[in-house]
């Protein structure tokens, strides 16, 4: 892995992937908004070519019609950070599993499935992790009805 510059990397990625990648810079992170079809290949590139070996955080947000999956990546030796976001539509919420790239995605994806109801294609053991197996619904969705049962 050679020395590299984060901006340079983003430029390279934009050239390679094209209009399926949209880069946004906020004051904390460079955010790569990627189409979900390209998520896996982008993540492989980020890990193998650019040394982002630490998937720190895998989270999801409910935006009504769409869910957003948020990945915060760090590179432990080079101390870089980047954020990757992808969107899935609500009624076919499914995205590629990253368990092959980072084993840590295992339980984090199970948690997202458990609480947000997003399915991960290729996950070998996609079952609930925090809630009981017979729980109905996914509580972090905004339309989850709270209150007494």
């Amino acid at each position: 892995m050679q020395e590299f510059n984060l901006e340079q990397m983003v430029q390279n990625l934009e050239e390679q992937i094209g209009d399926k990648l949209r880069t946004v810079r906020d004051q904390f992170f460079i955010v790569l908004n990627i189409d979900k079809s390209e998520l896996r290949s982008l993540m492989f590139k980020l890990r193998d070519d650019y040394g982002f070996n630490h998937l720190a955080n895998l989270s999801s947000v409910d935006y009504g019609e769409e869910f957003e999956l948020v990945y915060h990546l760090y590179s432990i030796p080079a101390n870089d950070k980047i954020c990757v976001k992808t969107r899935v539509v609500r009624n076919s919420a499914e995205v590629d599993s990253l368990i092959e790239i980072w084993s840590t995605a295992d339980w984090q994806e199970r948690e997202v499935y458990d609480l947000m109801g997003i399915k991960f294609k290729g996950h070998p053991n996609l079952i609930r992790v925090l809630l009981p197996d017979d729980f109905e619904g996914h509580p972090l969705r905004k339309d989850f009805v709270m209150g007494g049962r």
């Binding site: 070996n53 630490h54 998937l55 720190a56 432990i76 980072w102 084993s103 840590t104 984090q108």
Partner: peptide
Amino acid sequence: EDAVKYGV
């Protein structure tokens, strides 16, 4: 290697 892979 495993420690990093598993996000420990």
